[in-house]
């Protein structure tokens, strides 16, 4: 999936940053091929914004090296700035200006000529569904509109690398899906997207590669499929009415019930496919064991996340 003919859009080695005595990033390595979506996934306070701020030249790392669009963030910040578009975690819209004026301001600051600035602003307003609100002040925009305007402002300079820091946090489901579509369209245009999120589903939906950031380090990295392989496969949860039924089923299926679990639930490994499910229920039926309820569980990034962070917890103890 990674194309060897192009250099990496983002290359980071040994990045460290502390605030006072608090070590926020403790040696981070990242590699993002051009034209891909990379998600940095982590809970609140993991250091996601700090990474974005370093890569977008807002703050300096204490040590380590970071190149964005082929340029070093410390030695060549202006080249990096010219190559990137940033939509930070917190709104960066000028509330006194209208949506259109915000975009034209970005056009001027990207040193576009007037006509080109107007043209791009019109295209972006249209594409992000802001046409009707173009002449309204940023202050009256809804959360989703603000986010879209914010992103549009970051795109006025036609960046090759786009940073999105928690682009959908606080958005309603509809706006979140709009934002996802926008990200997909960007990648289709060949742009590299580096996004941070707390939502596993989001990372799963959008990313070519995902890195899990926890307590200052990358604790897992790979494609969504690779990460899911890190945890045990899926299972079917069978619920029974009483202990005898549970025990009987456990013997029949050759799985032992979780002794810590008193909820009369049995977890049977399996991918939860329709055929396998039917076979399972047929066996129970043949043995005249009554099943009270059933749930199919396929592994998702939640499992990866909890598996990896729980392992961390054990080793750090």
């Amino acid at each position: 999936m990674t194309n060897t003919s192009t250099g990496p859009a983002i290359a980071v080695t040994g990045l460290r940053r502390s605030y006072g005595a608090q070590v926020v990033l403790d040696g981070i390595d990242l590699h993002v091929p051009e034209g891909t979506v990379f998600s940095l996934l982590g809970p609140n306070g993991a250091g996601k914004t700090t990474v974005v701020q370093i890569l977008s030249t807002l703050i300096r790392a204490d040590s380590g090296e970071a190149r964005v669009g082929g340029h070093d963030v410390l030695r060549d910040p202006d080249r990096v700035r010219a190559a990137i578009g940033v939509t930070g975690q917190f709104s960066a819209v000028d509330d006194f200006l209208t949506g259109e004026e915000n975009l034209l301001l970005m056009g001027d600051l990207n040193h576009l000529c007037r006509a080109e600035g107007r043209r791009r602003a019109a295209v972006l307003l249209e594409r992000f569904g802001l046409g009707e609100a173009a002449r309204k002040a940023g202050a009256v925009y809804s959360g989703g509109m603000r986010r879209r305007l914010d992103l549009a402002m970051g795109l006025m300079g036609d960046p090759r690398v786009v940073f999105l820091d928690e682009p959908t946090t606080g958005l309603d489901p509809r706006s979140r899906r709009d934002m996802w579509q926008i990200v997909r369209d960007l990648v289709a245009d060949g742009v590299t997207v580096f996004l941070t999120t707390q939502y596993l589903e989001e990372a799963d939906q959008l990313s070519d590669r995902i890195a899990l950031l926890d307590r200052g380090g990358i604790v897992a990295e790979g494609t969504p499929a690779e990460l899911k392989r890190l945890v045990p496969g899926g299972h079917v949860e069978l619920r029974f009415a009483d202990v005898p039924a549970l025990t009987e089923a456990a013997v029949l299926l050759g799985v032992s019930p979780d002794p810590a679990d008193e909820s009369l639930v049995l977890r049977v490994p399996g991918d939860g496919g329709v055929r396998a499910l039917k076979a399972l229920l047929d066996r129970l039926d043949a043995a005249a064991i009554e099943v009270d309820g059933l749930a199919v569980h396929t592994p998702d990034l939640d499992d990866v996340f909890f598996a990896v962070t729980a392992a961390e917890e054990v080793t750090s103890r």
Binding site: S56, T57, L58, D78, R79, R81, A82, I84, V86, G88, F90, S91, A92, V93, D94, L109, N110, M153, G154, G157
Partner: peptide, 10 residues
């Protein structure tokens, strides 16, 4: 927030 944006621009 727009000031932070200016700082990320060339």
């Amino acid at each position: 927030g727009i000031i932070a944006r200016f700082r990320t621009m060339a």
